[in-house]
Computed example of a mutant assay.
Amino acid sequence: MHETVTISIGECGNNIGAQFWRDCCTQSDLSVSGHSLHPQVPPPSNLFEEQVSSRFVPRAILLDSDPGTLANIRNSDLGFLFPPSACISGSYGAGNSFGNGCYDPDLLELIQEPLNDQIRIQAEKCDQTPNFNLFHSLGEGTGSGTTAFVLMHLKEEYRTSVFNCSVLPEPDASVVSPYNCILGLNYLIESSSAVLCIDNGYLTAKLGIGEINQYTSRQLVGMFESEKWWIPKYDQDAAYYQRHFYHSETMWKGEIVTSCLVSDTDKVIQEIEFGNTKLYNSGVIQSIKQQLDSFDLMFKRFKLRLLEKSPSIIISDKLNSYQAKIRFL
Protein backbone atom coordinates (compact mmCIF):
# COMPACT_ATOMS: atom_id res chain seq x y z
CA MET A 1 0.00 0.00 0.00
CA HIS A 2 1.06 3.59 -0.59
CA GLU A 3 2.91 5.01 2.44
CA THR A 4 1.08 7.71 4.33
CA VAL A 5 2.47 10.48 6.57
CA THR A 6 0.02 11.80 9.16
CA ILE A 7 0.30 15.38 10.46
CA SER A 8 -1.78 16.31 13.53
CA ILE A 9 -2.21 20.07 13.87
CA GLY A 10 -3.47 22.09 16.83
CA GLU A 11 -5.09 20.94 20.06
CA CYS A 12 -8.08 19.28 18.41
CA GLY A 13 -6.00 17.63 15.69
CA ASN A 14 -3.51 16.22 18.19
CA ASN A 15 -6.26 14.92 20.48
CA ILE A 16 -7.79 13.09 17.52
CA GLY A 17 -4.32 11.95 16.48
CA ALA A 18 -3.51 10.58 19.94
CA GLN A 19 -6.71 8.52 19.95
CA PHE A 20 -6.07 7.44 16.35
CA TRP A 21 -2.57 6.10 17.07
CA ARG A 22 -3.73 4.42 20.27
CA ASP A 23 -6.43 2.63 18.27
CA CYS A 24 -3.97 1.81 15.48
CA CYS A 25 -1.68 0.13 18.03
CA THR A 26 -4.59 -1.89 19.39
CA GLN A 27 -5.71 -2.94 15.90
CA SER A 28 -2.15 -3.87 14.90
CA ASP A 29 -1.25 -5.80 18.08
CA LEU A 30 1.30 -3.20 19.18
CA SER A 31 2.00 -1.93 22.66
CA VAL A 32 1.62 1.84 23.12
CA SER A 33 5.42 2.04 22.94
CA GLY A 34 5.35 0.50 19.45
CA HIS A 35 6.62 -3.00 20.24
CA SER A 36 4.96 -5.84 18.38
CA LEU A 37 2.99 -8.27 20.54
CA HIS A 38 2.81 -10.75 17.65
CA PRO A 39 5.92 -10.30 15.45
CA GLN A 40 4.60 -12.75 12.88
CA VAL A 41 1.78 -10.29 12.04
CA PRO A 42 3.41 -6.94 11.16
CA PRO A 43 1.31 -3.74 11.31
CA PRO A 44 0.42 -1.93 8.08
CA SER A 45 3.61 -0.50 6.56
CA ASN A 46 1.70 2.45 5.09
CA LEU A 47 1.18 3.82 8.63
CA PHE A 48 4.19 2.47 10.57
CA GLU A 49 7.93 2.32 9.97
CA GLU A 50 9.73 -0.73 11.34
CA GLN A 51 12.81 -0.13 13.45
CA VAL A 52 14.99 -2.49 15.51
CA SER A 53 13.76 -5.11 17.97
CA SER A 54 10.30 -5.44 16.41
CA ARG A 55 9.50 -1.84 17.28
CA PHE A 56 7.30 0.20 14.97
CA VAL A 57 7.13 3.99 14.86
CA PRO A 58 4.19 5.90 13.33
CA ARG A 59 4.82 7.85 10.16
CA ALA A 60 3.60 10.90 12.04
CA ILE A 61 4.33 14.55 12.82
CA LEU A 62 2.71 16.32 15.76
CA LEU A 63 2.46 20.10 15.32
CA ASP A 64 1.02 22.82 17.55
CA SER A 65 1.62 26.50 18.18
CA ASP A 66 1.20 25.93 21.94
CA PRO A 67 3.55 23.41 23.61
CA GLY A 68 0.95 22.32 26.19
CA THR A 69 -0.95 19.73 24.14
CA LEU A 70 2.20 18.00 22.90
CA ALA A 71 3.63 18.00 26.43
CA ASN A 72 0.51 16.19 27.62
CA ILE A 73 0.92 13.56 24.88
CA ARG A 74 4.61 13.06 25.68
CA ASN A 75 3.71 12.63 29.37
CA SER A 76 0.95 10.10 28.59
CA ASP A 77 1.16 6.39 27.85
CA LEU A 78 1.93 7.33 24.22
CA GLY A 79 5.04 9.26 25.23
CA PHE A 80 7.48 6.63 23.93
CA LEU A 81 5.61 5.97 20.68
CA PHE A 82 6.78 9.16 18.96
CA PRO A 83 10.42 10.26 18.66
CA PRO A 84 11.05 13.73 20.18
CA SER A 85 11.87 15.16 16.73
CA ALA A 86 8.34 14.33 15.55
CA CYS A 87 6.83 16.78 18.07
CA ILE A 88 7.09 20.40 16.90
CA SER A 89 5.61 23.36 18.78
CA GLY A 90 5.82 27.10 19.18
CA SER A 91 6.14 28.88 22.48
CA TYR A 92 2.58 30.27 22.67
CA GLY A 93 -0.79 29.70 21.03
CA ALA A 94 -2.21 31.33 17.91
CA GLY A 95 -4.76 33.34 19.88
CA ASN A 96 -7.66 31.71 18.04
CA SER A 97 -6.69 33.70 14.94
CA PHE A 98 -6.19 32.32 11.43
CA GLY A 99 -3.73 35.12 10.69
CA ASN A 100 -1.54 34.30 13.68
CA GLY A 101 -1.55 30.59 12.87
CA CYS A 102 -0.63 31.12 9.21
CA TYR A 103 1.51 34.26 9.12
CA ASP A 104 2.90 35.11 12.59
CA PRO A 105 6.67 35.50 11.95
CA ASP A 106 7.61 34.53 15.51
CA LEU A 107 5.63 31.29 15.27
CA LEU A 108 6.94 30.47 11.78
CA GLU A 109 10.50 31.07 12.92
CA LEU A 110 10.06 28.32 15.53
CA ILE A 111 8.17 25.73 13.47
CA GLN A 112 8.98 26.23 9.79
CA GLU A 113 12.47 24.75 9.59
CA PRO A 114 11.88 21.70 11.87
CA LEU A 115 8.53 21.04 10.17
CA ASN A 116 10.02 21.12 6.67
CA ASP A 117 12.88 18.90 7.85
CA GLN A 118 10.53 16.34 9.39
CA ILE A 119 8.31 16.22 6.30
CA ARG A 120 11.39 15.70 4.11
CA ILE A 121 12.80 13.00 6.43
CA GLN A 122 9.49 11.14 6.50
CA ALA A 123 9.15 11.38 2.71
CA GLU A 124 12.69 10.09 2.13
CA LYS A 125 11.97 7.01 4.25
CA CYS A 126 9.14 6.03 1.90
CA ASP A 127 9.59 4.03 -1.30
CA GLN A 128 7.75 6.72 -3.24
CA THR A 129 6.31 10.16 -2.55
CA PRO A 130 3.86 9.52 0.31
CA ASN A 131 0.29 10.61 0.69
CA PHE A 132 -0.39 13.01 3.56
CA ASN A 133 -3.18 12.90 6.13
CA LEU A 134 -3.93 16.05 8.15
CA PHE A 135 -6.05 16.07 11.34
CA HIS A 136 -7.21 19.51 12.49
CA SER A 137 -10.07 21.81 13.47
CA LEU A 138 -11.22 24.66 11.26
CA GLY A 139 -12.40 26.76 14.21
CA GLU A 140 -8.99 27.17 15.88
CA GLY A 141 -6.26 29.62 14.92
CA THR A 142 -3.68 26.84 14.66
CA GLY A 143 -6.07 24.27 13.19
CA SER A 144 -7.13 26.63 10.41
CA GLY A 145 -4.15 28.95 9.93
CA THR A 146 -1.20 26.62 10.49
CA THR A 147 -2.97 23.91 8.48
CA ALA A 148 -3.18 26.41 5.60
CA PHE A 149 0.56 27.03 5.94
CA VAL A 150 1.26 23.27 5.85
CA LEU A 151 -1.01 22.81 2.82
CA MET A 152 0.84 25.55 0.94
CA HIS A 153 4.16 23.84 1.62
CA LEU A 154 2.88 20.40 0.58
CA LYS A 155 1.38 21.83 -2.60
CA GLU A 156 4.64 23.57 -3.51
CA GLU A 157 7.09 20.79 -2.62
CA TYR A 158 5.15 17.52 -2.99
CA ARG A 159 2.67 17.06 -5.81
CA THR A 160 0.81 14.25 -4.09
CA SER A 161 -2.54 13.40 -2.52
CA VAL A 162 -3.56 15.15 0.70
CA PHE A 163 -6.46 13.97 2.87
CA ASN A 164 -7.88 16.25 5.58
CA CYS A 165 -9.98 15.16 8.54
CA SER A 166 -11.46 18.57 9.35
CA VAL A 167 -13.55 19.30 12.45
CA LEU A 168 -16.11 22.00 11.73
CA PRO A 169 -16.91 24.21 14.76
CA GLU A 170 -20.31 24.97 16.20
CA PRO A 171 -21.83 28.15 14.69
CA ASP A 172 -21.46 30.02 18.00
CA ALA A 173 -18.18 28.41 19.12
CA SER A 174 -16.46 31.81 19.20
CA VAL A 175 -16.80 35.21 17.59
CA VAL A 176 -13.97 34.55 15.14
CA SER A 177 -14.65 30.89 14.30
CA PRO A 178 -16.60 31.74 11.09
CA TYR A 179 -13.60 33.73 9.84
CA ASN A 180 -11.17 30.93 10.72
CA CYS A 181 -13.44 28.36 9.12
CA ILE A 182 -14.06 30.21 5.84
CA LEU A 183 -10.41 31.19 5.41
CA GLY A 184 -9.32 27.64 6.20
CA LEU A 185 -11.85 26.14 3.78
CA ASN A 186 -10.39 28.23 1.00
CA TYR A 187 -7.04 26.49 1.41
CA LEU A 188 -8.68 23.06 1.61
CA ILE A 189 -10.39 23.74 -1.70
CA GLU A 190 -7.11 24.83 -3.26
CA SER A 191 -4.81 22.11 -1.98
CA SER A 192 -6.61 19.04 -0.59
CA SER A 193 -7.55 15.95 -2.55
CA ALA A 194 -10.32 14.90 -0.15
CA VAL A 195 -11.83 16.26 3.06
CA LEU A 196 -13.78 14.30 5.67
CA CYS A 197 -16.04 16.76 7.48
CA ILE A 198 -16.70 16.23 11.20
CA ASP A 199 -19.46 18.44 12.64
CA ASN A 200 -18.45 19.10 16.25
CA GLY A 201 -21.74 20.67 17.32
CA TYR A 202 -23.93 17.94 15.81
CA LEU A 203 -21.84 15.10 17.20
CA THR A 204 -21.56 16.70 20.66
CA ALA A 205 -25.36 16.76 20.91
CA LYS A 206 -25.64 13.18 19.63
CA LEU A 207 -22.68 11.42 21.26
CA GLY A 208 -21.31 13.63 24.00
CA ILE A 209 -17.93 15.35 24.14
CA GLY A 210 -15.99 12.35 25.43
CA GLU A 211 -16.97 10.09 22.52
CA ILE A 212 -16.25 12.32 19.53
CA ASN A 213 -12.52 11.56 19.34
CA GLN A 214 -13.24 7.83 19.70
CA TYR A 215 -15.92 7.96 17.01
CA THR A 216 -13.69 9.90 14.61
CA SER A 217 -10.69 7.67 15.28
CA ARG A 218 -12.72 4.52 14.64
CA GLN A 219 -13.64 5.78 11.17
CA LEU A 220 -10.10 6.81 10.33
CA VAL A 221 -8.50 3.56 11.48
CA GLY A 222 -10.96 1.53 9.43
CA MET A 223 -10.32 3.65 6.36
CA PHE A 224 -6.52 3.83 6.51
CA GLU A 225 -6.03 0.14 7.24
CA SER A 226 -8.43 -0.96 4.53
CA GLU A 227 -7.05 -2.35 1.28
CA LYS A 228 -9.74 -0.27 -0.41
CA TRP A 229 -8.34 2.97 0.99
CA TRP A 230 -8.24 5.50 -1.79
CA ILE A 231 -7.45 9.21 -2.02
CA PRO A 232 -8.35 11.11 -5.18
CA LYS A 233 -5.22 12.00 -7.15
CA TYR A 234 -4.07 15.55 -6.53
CA ASP A 235 -4.70 17.72 -9.58
CA GLN A 236 -3.62 21.34 -9.42
CA ASP A 237 -5.93 22.26 -12.27
CA ALA A 238 -9.01 20.43 -10.98
CA ALA A 239 -12.09 22.65 -10.94
CA TYR A 240 -14.62 20.26 -9.42
CA TYR A 241 -14.05 21.23 -5.81
CA GLN A 242 -17.37 19.91 -4.55
CA ARG A 243 -16.38 16.35 -5.44
CA HIS A 244 -13.72 16.31 -2.75
CA PHE A 245 -15.81 16.95 0.39
CA TYR A 246 -17.27 13.95 2.18
CA HIS A 247 -19.49 13.15 5.12
CA SER A 248 -19.55 9.68 6.63
CA GLU A 249 -21.71 7.08 8.30
CA THR A 250 -20.54 4.38 10.66
CA MET A 251 -21.98 2.00 13.22
CA TRP A 252 -21.43 3.34 16.74
CA LYS A 253 -22.73 1.41 19.74
CA GLY A 254 -25.45 -0.24 17.70
CA GLU A 255 -26.61 2.90 15.91
CA ILE A 256 -25.75 4.38 12.52
CA VAL A 257 -24.20 7.80 13.16
CA THR A 258 -23.35 10.39 10.51
CA SER A 259 -20.40 12.76 10.88
CA CYS A 260 -22.47 15.82 9.94
CA LEU A 261 -25.87 16.89 8.67
CA VAL A 262 -26.51 17.33 4.96
CA SER A 263 -29.30 18.96 2.97
CA ASP A 264 -32.55 16.99 2.72
CA THR A 265 -32.44 17.46 -1.05
CA ASP A 266 -28.77 16.48 -1.29
CA LYS A 267 -27.74 14.04 -4.00
CA VAL A 268 -24.98 11.50 -3.41
CA ILE A 269 -22.36 11.84 -6.14
CA GLN A 270 -20.15 9.02 -4.91
CA GLU A 271 -20.25 6.38 -2.17
CA ILE A 272 -17.18 4.53 -0.84
CA GLU A 273 -17.45 1.70 1.69
CA PHE A 274 -14.72 0.68 4.18
CA GLY A 275 -16.14 -2.08 6.33
CA ASN A 276 -18.57 -0.43 8.75
CA THR A 277 -17.72 3.07 7.49
CA LYS A 278 -19.16 4.70 4.38
CA LEU A 279 -18.03 7.96 2.81
CA TYR A 280 -20.56 10.02 0.86
CA ASN A 281 -19.41 12.64 -1.63
CA SER A 282 -22.35 14.97 -1.81
CA GLY A 283 -23.54 18.53 -2.02
CA VAL A 284 -24.60 20.87 0.77
CA ILE A 285 -23.03 20.01 4.13
CA GLN A 286 -25.09 21.99 6.61
CA SER A 287 -22.27 22.90 9.00
CA ILE A 288 -20.33 24.57 6.16
CA LYS A 289 -23.44 26.48 5.13
CA GLN A 290 -23.98 27.63 8.73
CA GLN A 291 -20.40 28.92 8.95
CA LEU A 292 -20.79 30.69 5.61
CA ASP A 293 -24.06 32.34 6.72
CA SER A 294 -22.43 33.53 9.96
CA PHE A 295 -19.46 34.84 7.99
CA ASP A 296 -21.75 36.69 5.56
CA LEU A 297 -23.55 38.43 8.42
CA MET A 298 -20.35 39.42 10.24
CA PHE A 299 -18.61 40.58 7.06
CA LYS A 300 -21.55 42.78 6.05
CA ARG A 301 -21.52 44.43 9.49
CA PHE A 302 -17.77 44.92 9.25
CA LYS A 303 -18.02 46.59 5.85
CA LEU A 304 -20.83 48.89 7.00
CA ARG A 305 -18.90 50.02 10.06
CA LEU A 306 -15.74 50.51 8.02
CA LEU A 307 -17.55 52.58 5.40
CA GLU A 308 -19.21 54.70 8.10
CA LYS A 309 -15.77 55.65 9.40
CA SER A 310 -14.07 55.99 5.99
CA PRO A 311 -16.62 56.35 3.14
CA SER A 312 -13.87 56.52 0.52
CA ILE A 313 -12.10 53.30 1.52
CA ILE A 314 -11.85 50.47 -1.02
CA ILE A 315 -12.57 47.03 0.46
CA SER A 316 -10.72 44.10 -1.06
CA ASP A 317 -12.82 41.48 -2.84
CA LYS A 318 -10.50 38.67 -1.73
CA LEU A 319 -12.81 37.38 1.00
CA ASN A 320 -15.75 37.61 -1.38
CA SER A 321 -13.84 35.36 -3.80
CA TYR A 322 -13.39 32.84 -0.97
CA GLN A 323 -17.13 32.85 -0.40
CA ALA A 324 -17.82 32.31 -4.08
CA LYS A 325 -15.56 29.25 -4.25
CA ILE A 326 -16.98 27.76 -1.06
CA ARG A 327 -20.50 28.06 -2.48
CA PHE A 328 -19.49 25.36 -4.99
CA LEU A 329 -19.65 22.85 -2.12
Results as ranks from 00 to 15, higher is better:
residue 1 M to A: 14
residue 4 T to E: 08
residue 19 Q to G: 09
residue 28 S to M: 03
residue 42 P to W: 09
residue 43 P to R: 00
residue 43 P to F: 02
residue 45 S to H: 14
residue 46 N to K: 13
residue 50 E to M: 05
residue 51 Q to R: 11
residue 53 S to W: 14
residue 61 I to C: 12
residue 63 L to W: 00
residue 71 A to R: 11
residue 73 I to F: 05
residue 74 R to K: 14
residue 75 N to K: 12
residue 77 D to H: 13
residue 90 G to E: 03
residue 94 A to K: 01
residue 100 N to K: 11
residue 105 P to T: 10
residue 106 D to E: 10
residue 115 L to Q: 02
residue 120 R to P: 01
residue 124 E to G: 07
residue 128 Q to W: 07
residue 131 N to M: 12
residue 132 F to C: 02
residue 132 F to T: 02
residue 135 F to T: 07
residue 141 G to K: 06
residue 145 G to R: 03
residue 148 A to D: 06
residue 151 L to E: 13
residue 159 R to C: 15
residue 162 V to F: 14
residue 167 V to Y: 11
residue 175 V to T: 12
residue 190 E to A: 13
residue 195 V to F: 00
residue 200 N to W: 03
residue 201 G to P: 05
residue 201 G to Y: 08
residue 203 L to N: 00
residue 218 R to Q: 13
residue 220 L to D: 01
residue 221 V to A: 04
residue 225 E to D: 15
residue 228 K to M: 03
residue 230 W to R: 15
residue 235 D to M: 15
residue 237 D to C: 09
residue 241 Y to F: 09
residue 245 F to M: 07
residue 249 E to P: 01
residue 250 T to E: 10
residue 252 W to D: 01
residue 253 K to M: 15
residue 256 I to F: 12
residue 260 C to I: 11
residue 264 D to R: 07
residue 269 I to W: 12
residue 272 I to M: 14
residue 273 E to K: 08
residue 274 F to A: 01
residue 274 F to L: 08
residue 275 G to D: 05
residue 276 N to G: 10
residue 287 S to Y: 06
residue 290 Q to F: 04
residue 297 L to T: 08
residue 304 L to I: 06
residue 304 L to H: 10
residue 307 L to Y: 12
residue 318 K to M: 09
residue 328 F to D: 14
